[in-house]
Amino acid sequence: MARPTGYLMLPVMVVALMQALQGAPLFPELYAAAGAVLVVASSWTHFQLGRTVVEIRIRGHQIAMRSALDVVHERPITWHPLLRAKQQRDGLHIYAGDHTFRIHRVDWPAYSRIQNALQPDDAPEQARSCPY
């Protein structure tokens, strides 16, 4: 939450500095803007935690990818059919059910284990048949 708060507080602080240098009152607006910044930053952080994949489970031709919020709130595991895993320059694109996930190499210390388990291909879309 520190990064979005910092990005959003920068313009608030610049405006506060300009008002202070002009001798204008700044406290009512500064408090309202700081409160709005905290609401937006916490909403953005919650959104990012809901879409950041932190757990991958593979079972045959099925895959479960859980977000940080799914893990923290102990939500049940949802399995999706693993349609395809494609090797890209920066990592893997995983096509599971009606979802597409990107797994970046730098974000996963066990990237090679994930890659071996998924067996990504580089074939064109029409060349690979779905196991379902």
Rank of each mutant, 00 (worst) to 15 (best):
A2G: 08
R3S: 09
P4G: 04
P4N: 00
T5K: 01
T5G: 06
G6T: 08
G6S: 05
Y7M: 00
Y7S: 05
L10S: 04
P11V: 09
V12P: 00
M13G: 03
V15S: 09
V15F: 08
V15A: 10
A16T: 10
L17T: 13
M18E: 09
A20Y: 07
Q22G: 15
L26A: 06
L26N: 07
F27V: 10
E29D: 09
A34T: 15
G35C: 12
G35Y: 08
G35H: 03
A36T: 10
V37D: 05
V37K: 01
L38W: 08
L38H: 02
A41N: 01
A41R: 01
S43E: 10
H46Q: 13
H46P: 03
Q48H: 07
L49P: 04
R51D: 06
R51C: 11
R51V: 12
R51Y: 01
V53Q: 04
V53I: 14
V54Q: 00
E55R: 05
I56C: 08
R57A: 14
R59S: 14
R59G: 08
R59K: 15
H61F: 09
H61Q: 11
Q62H: 13
Q62R: 13
Q62W: 10
Q62E: 15
I63L: 02
A64M: 07
R66A: 07
R66Y: 06
S67I: 05
D70S: 01
V71C: 02
H73K: 07
E74A: 14
P76Q: 12
I77D: 08
L82T: 00
R84E: 01
A85M: 00
K86Y: 06
Q88R: 12
R89G: 10
R89N: 13
R89A: 15
R89P: 00
G91L: 04
L92E: 02
H93P: 01
A96Q: 07
A96W: 02
T100M: 07
T100G: 04
I103F: 06
H104D: 11
R105W: 03
V106A: 11
V106L: 11
P109V: 07
A110H: 15
S112T: 14
S112C: 05
R113Y: 09
R113W: 08
Q115A: 10
N116K: 11
N116A: 15
N116C: 06
L118S: 02
L118P: 02
Q119L: 11
Q119H: 11
P120I: 07
P120K: 03
D121N: 15
D122H: 13
A123E: 14
P124A: 10
Q126R: 02
S129Q: 12
S129N: 08
C130A: 09
C130W: 09
C130L: 11
